[in-house]
Design a protein around this nucleic acid. Sequence first.
DNA 1: GGAACTTTAATGCAGTTGCATCTATATTGG
DNA 2: CCAATATAGATGCAACTGCATTAAAGTTCC
Lengths: 144, 144
Amino acid sequence: MAEDKHEAAVDAWIALARAQRVAMARVEARLKEAGLPSLSWYDALWELEKAGEAGLRPYALEEALLFEQYNLSRLAERMCKAGLIERRACPEDRRGQILHISAEGRALRQRMWAVYEQAIEEAVGCRLTAEEAETLSGLLKKLT
Amino acid sequence: MAEDKHEAAVDAWIALARAQRVAMARVEARLKEAGLPSLSWYDALWELEKAGEAGLRPYALEEALLFEQYNLSRLAERMCKAGLIERRACPEDRRGQILHISAEGRALRQRMWAVYEQAIEEAVGCRLTAEEAETLSGLLKKLT
DNA sequence: GGAACTTTAATGCAGTTGCATCTATATTGG
DNA sequence: CCAATATAGATGCAACTGCATTAAAGTTCC
């Protein structure tokens, strides 16, 4: 197939960009059909749910989600407004705040997961064997 | 690792989303450092260069790039303004137009490729063997 | 202790994207 | 031929993103 190493890398790059866009579009479309918010909301809710009572500082959530600072600041604002998360003052650092998921947030995440899980199955699960999926994960993780 | 097939698919999905974002950010950063436009411009230029004298109808370019119609309409507008492509009337269909790359467009694509190629090597080539890269491409293509 | 610097988070502004709609031309069916 | 429908592409508006900057609090080093 690819004649040399570099060409193989270029092929992989192109395949990566395409596959991600196609798969992402499929999954986002399912969420939208169901009248649910987009994946970045899900990701934030999930990180905050995992963080539990302790909550998460915005900068920690930024790192987890690979979000830009200003981007997360505004996402948090919108999600607060929607009642899905809460901002609490941070006692140790008065510049900061701690984000917590609300009961509504937990409920929404659960509803989203039902759709999301199904969509991942359609976009990935149906197209790969278990072994292929594991190989794929392993190779992709080498890129990060 | 993953206990069942679905879990393996979910792992692969997460790894795909992360790897693509990380790799894409690295490559885009290289282009920006070099004062060059973003990848969507490159992709459009490359498709039009491959199309040669015949050019491409906007809807064909949309499909090739997985762009939304309005998105491509505006990309074409900006690239025209920048002198990189030309819009010509389409003789067979007076609703339509045909997009052509200009000499400046070809020159820019070439300059971008020098940086882009190097960036792909950094983001993908350095991290995988040739065989791994080919395996990765193969698995990713099964998703599209 | 205090000046210089760093970190946390917000925000004004401009550029980009998504959604819905619109215009113009082409095609189809009676 | 004409009405109904479909397709190609553009655009107004709202939401989102990136960039640069700002404000406020923390840290460092003398």
